[in-house]
Design a protein around this nucleic acid. Structure first.
Length: 664
RNA sequence: GCCUCCUUAGCUCAAUGGUAGAGCGCCGCUUUUGUAAAGCGGGGGUUGCAGGUUCAAGUCCUGCAGGAGGCUCCA
């Protein structure tokens, strides 16, 4: 017990324990229990994850990091450690296989880890097994991770001597007076080592299961003007079982991919001769669009919006005036020229709507003026960005612009937020984050209009409104629109990608540029504030998201094919046709399978198409005027009279129910 | 836009540099069937496109297009 000085550690249960200064996490864990000591991967001191064998020199809240938490769930901190260490092991494997490898940066990420390397040899998928085999050897050696610290100057000398520009760069960017290195083993200078902040698991043997997943290009520092590195992705878990489960989940996610389901359910298609990013909506997609528009239009009508229509193109002058051209010409399709004038295809609807505002003299009595349009827009997205329906070049936005006074802003803005929330509730979207994006000072005059005071004023107003409305938000700097702060609603698709589904922006700049004005009560001309909003975003992205959200099992109101009629034998075809007509007369999207196949095959086909209700008609039903209802997903809902079924289905549609109201 | 990989029938996938195939779907006939695939037969391809190497190219090489995974971007 050196020096005999004591420190106090507070355990997660709140109990306080005294330990000699310089004790280690391993020693503390051992004092608590054998099992805990054996399971321990690292410790947490006041929330900071640290190596198990690093001396503890101060009093702190103390927690042992283990693979599983108390609820026997995977502990994120434990995964972080094992993946961070796996990244080092993979780096060593890569260096063994290709000694000229220059290591760049290798952090743990959400689903695993990656390591960026600079290597002329292009790593191929076939070589993953080789990399894993090399990792296997290192893991089997159970070499400890040894932390070596040295003063900054000495450390800098060391990395400079190694001659790896990336490591020198990393060292220069590292915080603090001390640089730390991790040796995979006990012999610094001899065993593999890497500049690293830590922490790591005690030894390589603790990396129970790992897999090299993919290789991709990545720019150094994420800067497209810098050279491209190879990024090798991997994942790691404590046990093979956990890894297998993870891989199975990835497979499941693939089945929900909207590109796969979109094709299987004939929702949309691409055609090379039409062009990339230009989806064709098939009738099933068209039906879904109809339903979304109905939902939006109902809410907008109730909210006092008026519908407008504007052309798909306009003169260049409009975008010069709005200020879009200098900021966004790269994202617009190049202009076409006729009669000596350049015309652009519109990438957004706002300038047109501003002109609708300007089309008539406005009084304060006209405000708030809410102009809504399902406007078609075209954006020249980079080819590498296109992604199914989620990122496209032609889109239709659930757009509206609200022109209001500063006094009206708060109410209008909150009403918009409420509309978002009520729409999301309809779809059962409960995992989302509202991101409040503000400007960055550096971007003024470049990325953002150069109105520093108006920026601060508007942002403060939005922040205050969000607070008053009790709307949970996450604030992110330097992500605003060029004309004002915005609120993005982020959601996560089943593929794990993050998307902005809806967006809502406050524009203090462009109305002024358009000289938009209303006559105030005191007879002065005032510039209105403009709120841009799109709660359902674009049809393309929203439907892409919904496909994955529901895995194609849409609620009845949204399902492109709602009901299918199937007969047992062709003796019931006449009654089947009557049923089909009755369903269609009731406004239901219904079709029929009167083929000569067996009912089993018809059931399978109906399930494959994820049709919510299959009405089976046999001799008994035909005689009684009833239908045997089968709900999607092997659910027998019994025999109902045709009238009763239609009544129930209509109710389910009209309430936009998420679940079926029919029970067996 | 950048990096890597991929592209064979509508879909999922086979085919040592040596005569392009299967399953499902589609069409026809038979079957008249009660809740997850009845039987038989048929049609379907300039192997993404354009060049090149070769006696011979789906297979090797080059370019282009489209797609995938990333990076960058995203009003």
């Amino acid at each position: 017990m050196p020096d005999g000085k004591a420190i106090e550690l507070v355990f997660p249960d709140g109990s306080k324990h005294s330990f000699p200064e310089g004790t280690t996490g391993a020693a503390v864990a051992a004092s608590i229990g054998k099992r805990l000591a054996a399971d321990a991967l690292a410790v947490k001191l006041d929330g900071e994850i640290r190596d198990l064998n690093r001396p503890i020199t101060r009093s702190a809240a103390f927690q042992v990091v283990t693979p599983l938490n108390r609820k026997k769930e995977l502990d994120p901190d434990g995964l972080y450690c094992v993946r961070h260490s796996a990244a080092h092991v993979m780096a060593e494997a890569l260096c063994r296989l290709w000694p000229e490898t220059k290591l760049v940066y290798g952090p743990p990420v959400d689903d695993g880890f990656y390591y960026d390397i600079d290597l002329e040899h292009k790593i191929s998928t076939e070589e993953f097994a080789k990399i894993e085999a090399e990792m296997k050897k290192i893991v089997a050696e159970k070499r400890p991770f040894t932390r070596v610290e040295m003063p900054r100057a000495e450390g800098m000398k060391k990395v400079q001597a190694e001659g790896n520009v990336y490591k020198v760069d990393n060292a220069e960017r590292a915080e603090g007076d001390v640089l730390s290195f991790y040796v995979t083993g006990e012999k610094p200078g001899a065993d593999f080592e890497d500049l690293c902040r830590g922490p790591h698991v005690p030894d390589t043997g603790r990396i129970g299961a790992y897999k090299v997943m993919s290789v991709a290009g990545a720019y150094w520092h994420g800067d497209a003007s810098k050279q491209q590195l190879q990024r090798v992705y991997g994942t790691a878990f404590h046990t093979q079982e956990q890894l297998d489960k993870h891989l199975a989940l990835l497979d499941e996610a693939k089945k929900r991919d909207h590109r796969k389901i979109g094709r299987e359910l004939s929702i949309y298609a691409y055609d090379d001769e039409v062009g990339p990013g230009l989806p064709l909506w098939l009738p099933n997609g068209g039906a879904m669009i109809e339903e979304l528009e109905r939902l939006a239009k109902e809410a907008e009508f109730a909210g006092g919006y008026q519908r407008v229509k504007s052309p798909h193109i306009c003169k260049e002058q409009l975008y010069i005036k709005s200020g879009h051209l200098p900021y966004y010409a790269d994202s617009m399709f190049p202009p076409m020229e006729f009669e000596g004038v350049k015309y652009y295809i519109k990438p957004m609807n706002c300038p047109h709507h501003h002109k609708i505002f300007a089309a008539e003299p406005r009084s304060y009595r006209d405000l708030p003026l809410r102009l809504a349009e399902y406007g078609s827009c075209y954006r020249y997205e980079q080819s590498g960005e296109l992604f199914g329906l989620m990122r496209v070049r032609s889109m239709q936005m659930n757009d509206a612009h609200i022109y209001c006074t500063i006094e009206q802003f708060e109410q209008e803005f909150l009403d918009v937020c409420k509309m978002y929330l009520s729409h999301f509730k309809v779809f059962g979207i409960d995992k989302f984050v509202m991101r409040f994006s503000t400007h960055g000072k550096e971007g003024l005059g470049k990325k953002y209009v150069n109105e520093p005071e108006l920026w601060l004023k508007t942002e403060a107003m939005v922040r205050e409104t969000l607070r008053k409305g009790d709307i949970p938000t996450e604030e992110v700097a330097n992500e605003a629109a060029f004309y004002g702060p915005k609120i993005d609603v982020q959601v996560w698709s089943a593929i794990g990608r993050e998307f902005t589904l809806a967006t809502n922006q406050v524009d203090f700049a462009v109305p002024k540029r358009f000289n938009l004005a209303y006559k105030a009560a005191d007879n002065t001309d005032q510039t209105p504030l403009c709120i841009h909003r799109a709660p359902l975003g674009t049809h393309e992205r929203f439907i892409g998201f919904l496909i994955e959200h529901f895995a194609g099992n849409f609620p009845l109101w949204l399902a492109p094919q709602q009901v299918r009629v199937a007969n047992i034998t062709d003796k019931q075809e006449d009654f089947g046709k009557k049923v089909l007509k009755a369903l269609r007369d009731a406004g239901l999207r219904a079709d029929a399978d009167f083929g000569h196949g067996k009912i089993n095959a018809k059931v399978l086909e109906s399930e494959r198409l994820k049709i919510p209700y299959l009405l089976v008609i046999g001799e008994r039903e035909a005689a009684a005027g009833s239908v045997a209802v089968r709900g999607r997903g092997r659910r027998d809902l019994g025999v109902l009279s045709l009238e009763r079924f239609i009544e129930e289905a209509e109710k389910e549609v009209n309430t936009r129910a998420l679940d079926t109201s029919l029970k067996a």
